[in-house]
Design a protein around this nucleic acid. Structure first.
Length: 584
RNA sequence: GGUCCCGUGGUGUAGCCUGGCCAAACACGCGGCCCUGUCAAGGCCGAGAACGCCGGUUCGAAUCCGGUCGGGACCGCCA
């Protein structure tokens, strides 16, 4: 028996009428009328109704009464148009049905722990444990299929543009830079470790020195960091590097790529070029470096108007060198105190000292002029309410960004169906970390703007970077930069970042050495396929686009990983486990 | 590292604030019977949870308290 080349359940149409066939699939649903029995038979392509008629095939009908959900069966029969009035317009196969003449149960099934349907949401842990059942849900199957088609479109496009796919090693050298490495012990070198790639960053630059010129790879990258709704441990990224290019070449390539993907996969024409927004403008107006422009709610700075205010909660933050930011909620006058308190809880949860609103309890501490300035800056109308946060700049931005998204979600201000691509560009070479120290904004190989070179020593924070992020509907789908290709400049930047020569040598010596053997100017970009898919299927949960995701605590509930290993294996690796201290 | 939410039959919820009327309700699913055109099929009958786990308070706890485990959201972190 081979059903491999049998027709697909979900692919049958009116044009197949009269066809004698064998079908293989899972029983999605059974409707037993005593006389007639209907089943919906499901496979990856969809579902088709099969009808068992005792008058037509008594044995098949008898067998069919034993069918249960998720049994795997083989059906022999004939495709027939449904009788008039019995068509089901909600099913793509709804004009026809298969009249069964024979039925074979290939495999029986226990009752699944949750219904294999799109609208039934079971407990997350249960779904992850039985991921193979969750994937049977048409929605998830569809998402994985879309992902496949996106990746195929990417391959076609990159190949057409003469990019060469090159594989890079999984076992690399660890770096203290960036995110935490996953490390792999070396059996042959006791006490030494490989690191799994966070990205093939240095290797792709070395491929440019190697003269490959146009490189791409759909690569796995692993980062041992805490998870979020839009983060997984193992991400898949389209990694691209190109020689002799400028940012404009990268923009054009990637705009063309997304246009191609949208056209091929979704049949949608997206306009190019994408709009561009300065990183600082984005942080100010949208409170994030990945703004979602499917809704408005623009944030304004009202610090200057409130320098002398009597409202101490605002004044305190300003006197401490902070800022006051605000935005208007259209029609927000109707928000209840409870709703506003809810938002305040959210704001405090994100680290804000509090949330103010106007009109609100703060009114009596604000002068008429101050109130007018707030309303005007926020663009508030008579029915609107203005939300205000006073804090350190970065905190205020984070909180306002969070509130902006929350308000849009709650008040349904998101214009679904819009594809708002944009470039965040330029970005800035350096940022201040939590301790007030200077650190890199993108990564230490990013080239400064030539015009800003003079500022490197005096005002490093104002040095623009030749770095860019591509953002779609609030999701950062790719980011990259033009790299430094000059050994001296690279060393200078490392120096500004506070790295000493020895560290530069051990961490980046190979790259700097390579730059002495003829290096082309180069740059590139990496696109997160998981997040891209999130935007395409409009989900805010990355698990909807990954076949086998892990939990927030990095566990695979289906495989039971991680798990302990045989002591012999550890011995071979010269590894001793120190159990965590247990609080008594 | 931190904050918050959730954990009741196979699944989703109700009950928990205001302890006893809760060996716990409802829907779906599941099992049986009836039913020849349904497609969330329908009708009738039935089984199924001592309320994540441990401890405490109390005459009495699903309900209150502490801890713990698991899931999730967020801040930090993620170049």
């Amino acid at each position: 028996m081979s059903g491999f080349s049998a027709p697909h359940c979900g692919s049958l149409r009116a044009s197949d009428e009269g066809r004698e066939l064998e079908l293989y699939g899972w029983v999605a649903r059974r409707r037993d009328h005593g006389g007639l029995i209907f089943i919906d038979l499901r496979d990856r392509w969809g579902a088709i109704q099969v009808v068992f008629n005792p008058a037509h095939a008594p044995q098949a009908h008898t067998n069919a009464s034993d069918l249960r959900s998720e049994y795997v069966v083989r059906v022999e029969g004939k495709v027939a148009r449904r009788r008039p009035g019995a068509e089901n317009p909600r099913m793509p196969t709804g004009e026809v049905e298969v009249v069964a003449s024979d039925l074979e149960v290939i495999s029986v099934a226990k009752t699944p722990p949750f219904a294999i349907e799109d609208d039934v949401e079971a407990d997350e842990a249960t779904r992850l444990k039985y991921r193979y059942l969750d994937i049977r849900r048409p929605k998830l199957t569809h998402n994985l299929e879309l992902r496949h088609r996106v990746v195929q479109a990417i391959h076609r496009y990159m190949d057409a543009h003469e990019f060469m796919e090159v594989e890079t090693p999984m076992l690399l050298k660890g770096t203290p830079e960036g995110s935490r490495d996953f490390i792999v012990p070396s059996r042959l070198h006791p006490g030494e470790f490989f690191a799994l790639p966070q990205s093939p960053q240095q290797l792709k630059q070395l491929l440019m020195v190697a003269g490959i010129g146009r490189y791409y790879q759909i690569a796995r990258c692993l980062r041992d960091e805490d998870l979020r709704a839009d983060r997984v441990v193992e991400i898949t990224q389209l990694d691209v590097e190109m020689a002799f290019c400028t940012e404009e070449d990268v923009f054009e390539l990637i705009e063309g790529l997304w246009a191609k993907v949208w056209k091929d996969v979704l049949g949608i024409d997206i306009p190019t070029p994408f709009r561009r927004i300065d990183m600082r403008e984005s942080l100010l107006k949208y409170g994030t470096d990945k703004p979602d422009l499917r809704f408005d709610l623009e944030i304004a700075d009202v610090s200057d108007a409130l320098r002398e205010t009597g409202a101490t909660v605002l004044r305190g933050a300003l006197d401490a060198g902070g800022v006051v930011r605000c935005f208007a909620v259209p029609g927000g006058k109707d928000m209840s105190r409870r709703e506003l308190d809810d938002l305040a809880v959210l704001a405090r949860g994100a680290g804000a000292k509090g949330l103010a609103w106007a009109p609100g309890p703060l009114d009596r501490h604000l002068s008429e002029g101050e109130m007018a300035a707030i309303k005007s800056a926020a663009g508030a109308g008579a029915d609107d309410i203005v939300l205000l946060v006073a804090d350190r700049r970065r905190k205020a931005e984070t909180v306002m960004g969070l509130l902006r998204r929350e308000i849009a979600r709650r008040r349904k201000l998101v214009r679904h169906g819009e594809w708002n691509f944009l470039w965040v560009y330029p970005m800035y070479l350096f940022e201040e970390d939590d301790l007030g120290n200077l650190t890199y904004g993108h990564h230490p190989f990013t080239s400064p703007w030539p015009e800003d070179m003079a500022l490197l020593a005096e005002r490093p924070y104002d040095v623009r970077a030749r770095a860019y992020d591509c953002v779609l509907n609030g999701v950062e789908i790719s980011g990259g930069s033009i790299r430094i290709h000059d050994r001296e400049l690279q060393e200078r930047v490392f120096g500004i970042l506070g790295m000493d020569e020895e560290r530069i040598g051990t961490q980046f010596g190979h790259l700097l050495d390579a730059f002495e053997y003829g290096v082309p100017p180069h740059g590139g970009i990496a696109a997160g396929i998981d997040r891209l898919m999130m935007a395409i299927v409009e989900t805010d949960n990355i698990r909807d686009v990954v076949a086998f995701p892990k939990t927030q605590s990095h566990q695979d509930l289906m495989l039971g990983a991680p798990s302990s290993v045989d002591p012999k294996q550890l011995e071979e690796l010269h590894i001793q486990v120190i159990p965590p201290e247990k609080p008594s």
